[in-house]
């Protein structure tokens, strides 16, 4: 056998082995949660991961995207379950038949933050008043507002607040900047530009914790009920997406709605502050409609004998 053929054979063998290593590796049991940047960037998912894995024996993976993008990824069947905060989209997802069950699991609250010293005088208990001050200052060139601009739940809430003030065509306003980024990146951008933005408390605390005073932002509005931010788990329709890991998705749902899961969420702190508040089965307490039907289904699933 001549050398060239031998070399060719050897190379072919190496390629085959490489392909084998690359593509035949065992990929184990896991569940992919499509979630928002706030749950991922705040560290909540990292915090829950070991508990969930110990409980269910399934690896917990998540893709952190804006809520809109998370829904889009799930609509293609590329995630097993959703954990997001955009009620309109969630309901649309379920009513279109892509999802089968939606339940609120916890909430956090949004805050309006702005440059140290609050040049726009936006400090207020009322989010509408605060946003109005920012817009006024913006028109006179004294303030900037940075929007997530990524179709996330945060972005959706922000647009609702502007709409309530009658402010539209935002992209054409000189003082309005669309970042097209996740929460942390948007906060850092606001800090650099000396701008106001709407943020979830969890991400803001986490970033404040890691960047300290290099994050030149302070809270100007908090505590307004319209700034409450409920997160839901949405189960996908397994007959529409037969390839998803449905059983593992249910495990995740049962875990996060269990007393243990709810307790973990409530105990999670960022820089010493609690940022997420469990609300499963008690949605009325923050002024949301009751979810008795969903709760009944989940509890039935739990007694059916799932791991959790």
């Amino acid at each position: 056998m001549d050398h060239a053929k031998l070399a060719l054979l050897a190379s072919a063998t190496i390629v085959a082995v490489l392909l084998g290593v690359a593509f035949l590796g065992p990929s184990g049991e896991r569940v992919i949660v499509a979630t928002t940047t706030s749950t991922a960037d705040s560290g909540l998912m990292d915090y829950l991961k070991p508990y969930f894995e110990a409980e269910c024996g399934t690896s917990l993976s998540w893709i952190s995207l804006g809520s809109g993008q998370a829904v889009a990824v799930a609509s293609r069947g590329d995630a097993d379950v959703l954990l997001i905060h955009d009620r309109e989209r969630e309901e649309q997802f379920v009513s279109s038949g892509n999802g089968t069950l939606r339940v609120t699991v916890f909430y956090n609250d949004f805050i309006i933050v702005g440059p140290i010293g609050d040049p726009a005088n936006a400090s207020s208990r009322d989010a509408k008043v605060s946003m109005g001050s920012i817009a006024n200052a913006g028109r006179s060139g004294a303030a900037l507002f940075v929007s997530r601009g990524d179709n996330s739940g945060t972005h959706a809430l922000e647009k609702r607040l502007w709409a309530a003030l009658g402010i539209g065509e935002l992209e054409n306003l000189g003082w309005y900047k669309s970042a097209g980024s996740g929460m942390s990146a948007t906060l850092r951008l606001a800090s650099e530009l000396g701008a106001y933005t709407l943020a979830d408390r969890a991400t803001f605390c986490r970033l404040k914790g890691s960047m300290g005073e290099a994050l030149r932002l302070e809270v100007v509005c908090e505590g307004d009920p319209s700034l409450l931010n409920p997160y839901s788990v949405v189960l996908l329709n397994s007959s529409r997406y037969p390839k998803i890991r449905y059983e593992q998705a249910i495990d995740f749902l049962l875990f996060i709605t269990s007393p243990e899961g709810q307790g973990l969420v409530g105990n999670f702190t960022v820089s010493g502050e609690r940022v997420f508040f469990p609300i499963y089965g008690k949605t009325e307490s923050i002024g949301l409609p009751p979810e008795d039907e969903a709760v009944a289904i989940i509890e039935a699933l739990r007694t059916r004998g799932h791991v959790v």
């Binding site: 960037d41 980024s181 996740g182 942390s184 990146a185 850092r188 986490r206 970033l207 890691s210 960047m211 290099a214 994050l215």
Partner: peptide, 9 residues
């Protein structure tokens, strides 16, 4: 990218 986003420079 993640750690830059979350400010853990």
């Amino acid at each position: 990218m993640l750690y830059t986003n979350t400010g853990e420079f």
